[in-house]
């Protein structure tokens, strides 16, 4: 009984993951500028990969600890790396899509000069 439930749960999780991965891919094709694409790529793939890996962990016996560890690691690193990419590209002078309004970064005039925000 438990196996059946776990199997269904795993399948559903994998389906959700695959759907979000598809959405991420679609977003990378359709969205206009770097920041939007990055958002689509990261947000969708984070959820997609995490739920896929947990689903696989539920389906295959004994893989759950590994897949949970994988998911935690992905949750920690994936957003940070895309945050770093976005920040670096903004600083390097990549202009956001003109429909992006308001440009919070420009408005708040964030201190990028290197005088430390926090030490």
């Amino acid at each position: 009984m438990l196996n059946v439930v776990l199997g269904w749960l795993g399948t559903v999780l994998i389906s959700i993951g695959v759907f979000f991965l598809f959405l991420g891919a679609l977003g990378i094709f359709r969205l206009p500028d770097l920041f939007n694409r990055l958002q689509a790529g990261t947000k969708a793939t984070t959820l997609g990969v995490v739920s896929t890996s947990i689903g696989v962990g539920l389906l295959v016996k004994g893989w759950l600890p590994f897949s949970v560890a994988l998911a935690v690691f992905l949750l920690m690193t994936n957003p940070i790396s895309s945050h770093a990419v976005a920040r670096a590209s903004y600083r390097a002078g990549v202009k956001p899509y003109h429909g992006t309004s308001p440009d919070e970064c420009a408005k708040r005039n964030l201190d990028f000069s290197g005088e430390g925000e926090e030490k």
């Binding site: 935690v72 690691f73 920690m76 690193t77 957003p79 940070i80 945050h83 770093a84 920040r87 600083r91 990028f112 000069s113 290197g114 005088e115 430390g116 925000e117 926090e118």
Partner: peptide, 19 residues
């Protein structure tokens, strides 16, 4: 002067480093 990385990077790398 170098760009100071953001708080997110600072905290995130430290946690990731442990793992």
């Amino acid at each position: 002067k170098k760009t100071e990385p953001s708080l997110i990077m600072y905290v995130g790398t430290r946690i990731a480093f442990a793992v």
